[in-house]
Amino acid sequence: MQQRFYLELAEAGLRMPVGADLVLQEQAEPEAILLDAGRLGQVVAAAADRYATPLAFPLMDLRLEKADLLAFCGVAEEAADAFHFSEPPSESLIEELRGGAARPFSPRIQANQGAVRYIAESTGYVPVGMLIGPFSLMTKLVADPIAPVAMAGKGVTAEEDDGVRMVERCLELALLTVLRSARAQMAAGAKAMIVCEPAANTTYLSPRQLRGDSGLLERFVLEPNRRLRALLGEHGVDLIFHNCGVLTTDMVRQFAAELRPSVMSLGSSRKLWEDAAVVAREIVLFGNLPTRMFYSDSVMPVEEVTRLTLELRGKMAECGHPHILGSECDVLHVPEAAETIRRKVDAMLHAGRRPVV
Rank of each mutant, 00 (worst) to 15 (best):
Y6Q: 01
Y6H: 02
L9D: 03
E11P: 03
M16R: 15
G19V: 04
A20W: 07
L22S: 09
L24A: 05
Q25W: 12
A28I: 08
E29V: 10
P30R: 08
E31N: 13
E31P: 06
L34W: 08
L35V: 02
L35E: 05
A37T: 08
G38W: 11
G41V: 06
G41P: 06
G41Y: 05
Q42I: 04
V43W: 09
A46F: 04
D49M: 12
A52S: 15
P54G: 06
L62T: 15
L62D: 11
K66A: 06
L69Q: 09
A71F: 05
A71P: 03
G74Y: 04
G74P: 04
G74S: 05
A76G: 07
A80C: 09
A80S: 14
H84A: 13
P89L: 03
L93P: 07
R98S: 14
G99L: 10
G100A: 14
A101L: 14
A102W: 09
A102K: 12
P107W: 13
R108T: 12
A111H: 07
A111Q: 09
V116A: 12
Y118H: 15
S122K: 15
G124N: 08
P127I: 08
L131Y: 01
K140C: 05
K140F: 01
D144K: 12
D144F: 09
P145A: 10
A152V: 06
T157W: 08
A158V: 04
G163S: 05
R165W: 06
M166T: 12
E168C: 15
C170W: 06
L173I: 10
A174P: 00
L175G: 02
A184W: 09
A188I: 10
A190I: 09
K191R: 15
C196A: 15
P198A: 04
A200K: 03
N201Q: 06
S206L: 06
L210G: 00
G212E: 01
D213S: 13
G215N: 02
G215M: 00
L217C: 05
F220E: 00
E223R: 13
R226I: 00
A230K: 07
E234R: 13
E234I: 01
D238R: 13
H242Q: 04
V246A: 14
L247V: 07
D250E: 15
D250F: 11
V252C: 07
R253N: 05
F255I: 05
F255L: 11
A257P: 05
S262R: 14
S265Q: 12
S269D: 14
L272Q: 01
E274W: 08
N288P: 03
M293F: 14
F294P: 02
S296R: 09
D297N: 12
S298T: 15
S298I: 13
V305S: 03
T306A: 10
L308S: 00
E311C: 09
E318V: 08
G320E: 02
G320P: 01
I324R: 00
L325I: 03
G326S: 04
H333V: 02
E336H: 14
R343S: 12
V345A: 05
V345C: 08
L349S: 00
L349E: 00
H350C: 13
G352E: 01
